[in-house]
Design a binder for these strands. Structure first.
Lengths: 252, 252
DNA sequence: CGTAGACTATGACGTAACGAGAGAGTCAAC
DNA sequence: GTTGACTCTCTCGTTACGTCATAGTCTACG
């Protein structure tokens, strides 16, 4: 028998939330003390877990109630309907993002950032340096436009662009850091690594497997990189290198 | 000078909405009759249009107020911040969709459609065939699980699933066909192409750029595909191929 | 001029899922 | 018996309005 705060601490929700769930009949405690204290059993906890799962995938509390209270409820059907709904929402978001993008572009017109500004305080700049090392190599293998275009890319980034890039970078690093307890060959990890390569390609230059391998080594060899990456987790650079190499081995 | 209902009818919002905007000071009528009737000018209408635009891209009313009321407000900055927010929301949705998908798959296990049923009348089946051509190639490059999982996917689709897939496919083709007068590199066209690639990934197999390029060629080389695609518009397959190749060039 | 019908106004409650108090009672330890 | 940690039940606030309810206004028609 657990009291509210215990339950709250165990599963990571607020006491208020439990009160609320009690109030709407979604999760009622097994028993109540004479003083009116709520007492939950472990089977109550199980139900709470289920509630949280459905909440995570976007079900409303009412929908969750339906799904959990009626054993004959067609869960699969509910999930599929729900998925359609989610996809529509995503479509809405895609459209919105697209419109915002267009608006931004129309607002822009000559505000590209100067190199001076760009160099200030952004470690990201180092990736560009790395690019130069490989520039010749790349130039041999790919049509000129590809490379030129890529170089033109970063030269027009504004401070905000760099900010965005930094944020997205941090996110990817973070996602990988979160999974450092897994094997570097873990599918989710590999997927993030793929996103990283793709990200470099989209924002800096066409990132070939050779370059990617080169980057992997650079991350542990060059202290500037290592320091920056390990901010996200002790030994991330080492781990990342392994994962990247595995990725390259599997894909080329 | 327009009265509330006129304004409401003109721009397509409810009278209540206008009341609300008045109340929160977002859009106040130019003048008020002795009887208390709201009277809007055409400049009020213009502001309303702006409000609706920002609303469409997901700004809150308070944010809109900030943007419109302060001429020195950095609109571009606001838009970029907003875009980040939207992207985060989309990421959340993506994750949710992914989880729902996995849950559905785990629930399925005995209700998969038989191959017999599946083959009947669904041209979509051909995409799967195409997959097989690339299966070996893909298998070399990606971790086994990825491919296996993908193959498991289609084998469990029900008739309804295929129906849905057909519908979504038609929608995307249709959207592209509608824009065939534009350059294949047109952003909207490219966006649809991106959706198509994403769609294949979600419903069939991890669609790499190589595969996507392969599909592009297949659409014009294989008469079964060509015929099917050109149903949506004369020469769509040719057009689609160009657009897909451009997409690949820009993204990889 | 009286009235029906269309339009207008201002509240006020409801929505979803809680967060943030307020005021008050309960429990265990010292 | 008091303190501190915890519990309870209201109640308001949040977003962008929808939906009444009640009441005043305007205009056309008989």
């Amino acid at each position: 028998m657990y009291k509210v705060k215990e339950v709250a601490d165990i599963v990571g929700v607020s006491v208020r939330t439990l009160h609320h769930y009690d109030q709407i009949g979604l999760l009622q405690p097994e028993s109540i003390t004479p003083a009116g204290y709520r007492l939950y059993t472990s089977s109550n906890l199980e139900r709470l877990q289920q509630i949280l799962f459905f909440k995570e995938i976007g079900f409303s509390l009412q929908e969750i109630k339906n799904v959990l209270d009626q054993p004959d409820f067609d869960r699969k059907e509910a999930l599929k309907l729900h998925k359609d709904l989610l996809k529509k929402k995503r479509q809405r978001l895609d459209d919105m993002i697209h419109t915002v993008d267009q608006t931004i572009q129309s607002l822009e017109g000559g505000t590209a950032m100067t190199n001076e500004d760009m160099f200030k305080g952004f470690d990201m700049k180092e990736i560009e340096e790395h690019q130069k090392k490989y520039a010749d190599e790349v130039r041999e293998k790919y049509p000129k436009e590809t490379v030129d275009q890529a170089q033109a890319k970063t030269s027009q980034y504004t401070k905000d662009d760099w900010q965005n890039i930094m944020e997205e970078t941090n996110e990817i690093y973070g996602n990988i850091a979160k999974r450092m307890d897994r094997d570097p060959a873990d599918p989710e990890v590999q997927q993030e690594v793929g996103k990283w390569k793709q990200f470099i390609t989209e924002n800096f230059y066409y990132c070939t497997f050779e370059i990617f391998r080169g980057l992997a080594d650079l991350y542990v060899d060059d202290p500037r990189f290592t320091k920056n990456i390990d901010k996200h987790g002790e030994g991330l650079s080492q781990y990342l290198r392994k994962a990247m190499i595995i990725y390259c081995d599997n894909h080329s």
